[in-house]
Design a protein around this nucleic acid. Structure first.
Length: 365
RNA sequence: UGGGGUAUCGCCAAGCGGUAAGGCACGGGACUUUGACUCCCGCAUUCGUAGGUUCAAAUCCUGCUACCCCAG
């Protein structure tokens, strides 16, 4: 009987994934990952509660379970980079790295050591393998599709992974959980950085980054207020600036982080031209298939998500080495250095890259 | 210390005798496996201050205080 190790988070999706695999006759083993030690804002260690839920669920399904600790790996391979990016004034996405380095690397290795041939998670994505090449496809539930977070994976990793709920809707997953009496059927979806959880992000960052106050100014230099450190803000941000009134009375948005002068530049109005760009240069391009969708330097059409859950944006892309040049058909709002842009062709997730710069004219490659 | 003007929520700002609009900020919630964005709800028994007129004042009158402008 083929053994499958399921990454159990204590949530509904991974629980139902384990349930489905068990029903399909696999030798299912549940494994809970603990990758972050701190308690949350309320002094509660959610990891402890989640671990209890995992145990309850596994008992309910009738499968063995274990816990494994990747705190060190998480810190070294994900969090260190996360902090370094913030220090550089960028806005990283730790979860895309977490998937590449932890869930589908450290954890996958662990699963294989347990004698499994493959692993499974509760991600809302699908795979197929035409011609023996595994591809990453969007989840059937367009509203929950999580392929964005898995764009950094390689074919070899995906070939070892199963995504039992990828063909279901969230509603169906909950319904199935309820029908089988899983104790987490009504548990609220978790949000926030994976393994770190929901918390006041600014307060959280203050535990790791210095607060170097500076001016908040308009593009023409008018001083409007004070910021607590550029790392604590991101492009397109509105809340938390503490500046109101003045000008035409509309809201203020972050349009630039001037590291040299330690000035946070803001502009007024959600439609400020400074908030939009059509072109982006992204680096560290990675392709699930192992190679770019088109020959070097040759433009190709596809769609892109500049952030999770953004509707697909039609773009023209061009790859040179690990650099990706993008020109969107429509201006894009607050495309942010450090964030991931993920490319698709139809249902297939091609891969993506990390935004480095933006402009209104194409970048020369 | 001569003249004129303005003082309404943290900021901007309606109100012009009939019992405090709105926007921004802020707080809470929703949405969300990143950060953001977005959406919903909340947010001045009180109008610089002390008196007066009136059935009734933020709105009229007087004193005081503060700030602004023009003159000196």
């Amino acid at each position: 009987m083929e053994r499958i190790v399921v990454g159990m988070s204590g949530g509904v999706d991974s629980s139902v994934s384990a349930l489905l695999l068990k029903q399909q006759g696999y030798d299912v083993v549940g494994v809970f990952m603990k990758n972050w030690a701190e308690k949350d804002d309320n002094g509660v260690c959610t990891a402890t509660e989640d671990w209890h839920d995992v145990q309850d669920v596994c008992d309910c399904i009738g499968i063995p379970y274990y816990a494994v600790n990747f705190e060190k790996e998480y810190w070294d391979r994900v969090f260190a980079t996360f902090l370094e990016e913030y220090r550089r004034g960028r806005t990283p996405n730790p979860d895309v790295l977490c998937n590449r380095e932890i869930k589908f690397h450290a954890f996958l290795d662990f699963a294989l050591k347990l004698g499994a041939t493959r692993m499974a998670t509760g991600h809302f994505v699908r795979t197929d393998a035409p011609g023996g090449h595994t591809r990453l496809l969007r989840g059937v539930d367009a509203n929950k599709d999580q392929s964005y977070f898995l764009y950094m994976l390689k074919e070899a990793q995906l070939a070892r992974a199963l995504f039992p709920v990828g063909g279901m809707t969230k509603a169906q997953v909950r319904e199935l959980a309820a029908r089988h009496g899983l104790p987490v059927s009504q548990k609220k979806d978790s949000t926030g950085v994976c393994f770190i959880g929901e918390r006041n992000f600014r307060t959280f960052l203050q535990g790791f980054l210095p607060t170097t106050a500076g001016d908040i100014r308009t593009e023409d230099g008018r001083m409007l207020g004070e910021h607590i450190g550029l790392a604590y803000y991101t492009l397109g941000q509105r809340k938390g600036l503490g500046i109101g009134g003045g000008g035409d009375g509309r809201s203020w948005f972050v349009v630039e982080k001037d590291l040299q002068r330690n000035v946070l530049v803001v502009a007024q109005g959600e439609d400020s031209p400074r908030l939009f760009t059509r072109c982006a240069l992204a680096t560290q391009a990675t392709w699930i298939a192992g190679e770019a969708p088109a020959p070097q330097g040759e433009p190709f059409r596809c769609t892109a998500k500049y952030r999770y859950r953004q509707p697909d944006q039609p773009v023209t892309a061009c790859v040179v080495g690990d650099t990706l040049q993008l020109t969107a058909d429509a201006p894009q709002r607050a495309v942010t250095p450090g964030q991931s842009v993920v490319l698709y062709q139809g249902e297939v997730c091609l891969g993506g890259a990390i935004v480095d710069q933006t402009a209104n004219e194409p970048f020369a490659l």
